[in-house]
């Protein structure tokens, strides 16, 4: 029996900004159909890693395979990287959806307009068909009634749920979340996390950069702890959070203490 191919395979990934290297050779596999949470102190490189997977940042070296296909660059026989043609890049990226910390909804379009934009302009669907599919996605995040509202008329939590619907509309195989609740008021994070939990239950492959340790521990099937641009720990939450804990992780949890983390830290 062969193991199923990982949804994302990352090899020796490095990323530098000018002189400073922020990712020092990341090796990581993201399992299909599971929720993987990237945690770590700020500056640990978790958002950069996620943005590399989205190809919003181009890694300095190393490779990323998405569903077995090289993303952006291909390693040649002599070890040199070759940039792939734009059409190939677009094809591979079309399997990836992204949800941003700042929502990034387009302000001049309604909620439905945001969700259907790419269906019409990229996939060439008719307005009617795109509208139906868009409404279905808004229903999925519980915002059917807000379809005609503009982003400026929605709460932060609602905006983020529209952003999730926008990503879902393109039927991606993989969904990336970059601190999806970090710019929300505490009482609004629940609605977004619930939508994400449902997606996880449906078997969506998700990679979530988050500071919500409680969410990571309960919804994440796998926790990746990054520190100073390296993968320090990688395992199921039960294993990682249970004592004896890695001292860096304990230090991190103590600094980023939220309710969920406090629960985990309490001696059983």
């Amino acid at each position: 029996m062969t193991l199923p191919a990982p949804a994302i395979a990352i090899r020796r990934l490095c990323k530098s900004y000018g002189q400073t290297e922020v990712l020092h050779g990341i090796d990581l596999e993201i399992a299909r159909g599971a929720t993987t949470c990237l945690i770590g102190p700020s500056g640990s490189g978790k958002s950069t890693l996620l943005r590399c997977i989205a190809f919003l940042e181009e890694a300095t070296s190393g490779t990323i395979l998405v569903n077995g296909q090289p993303l952006g660059f291909e390693e040649q026989a002599d070890g040199r990287r070759r940039r792939l043609p734009q059409a190939r890049i677009r094809e591979v990226r079309s399997g990836i959806g992204m949800v941003f910390q700042q929502f990034n909804l387009w302000p001049h379009m309604t909620a439905l307009g945001n969700v259907t934009e790419a269906l019409v302009t990229v996939q060439g669907l008719s307005r009617r068909e795109a509208g139906e599919r868009g409404m279905a996605q808004l229903r999925r995040v519980g915002l059917e009634a807000r379809a005609r509202h503009y982003p400026s008329e929605l709460s932060g939590g609602q905006q983020q749920r529209v952003a999730i619907a926008r990503a879902l509309a393109l039927e991606p195989k993989i969904l990336l979340f970059d601190e999806p609740t970090a710019s929300l008021d505490p009482e609004l994070t629940g609605e977004v996390l619930n939508v994400m939990r449902d997606l996880g239950d449906e078997g969506m492959t998700m990679v979530v950069v988050t500071h919500e340790i409680g969410f990571a521990a309960t919804v994440g099937q796998r926790i990746v702890f990054l520190d100073h641009g390296r993968v320090l720990l990688n395992g199921p939450p039960a294993e990682l959070f249970a004592p004896p804990r890695h001292p860096r992780l304990t230090q991190f949890l103590e600094t980023y203490l939220d309710r969920g983390a406090a629960m985990l830290l309490k001696p059983a």
Binding site: A54, L56, R90, R93, S94, I96, G97, M98, F100, Q102, N104, L105, W106, P107, E117, A118, T121, V122, A163, R166, A167, L170
Partner: peptide, 17 residues
């Protein structure tokens, strides 16, 4: 904001779109 263009990029819109 740059993020709005990144969101468009992720949705697969071409630079001209």
């Amino acid at each position: 904001p740059r993020g709005l263009l990144e969101a468009a990029d992720m949705a697969g819109l071409s630079p001209w779109q």
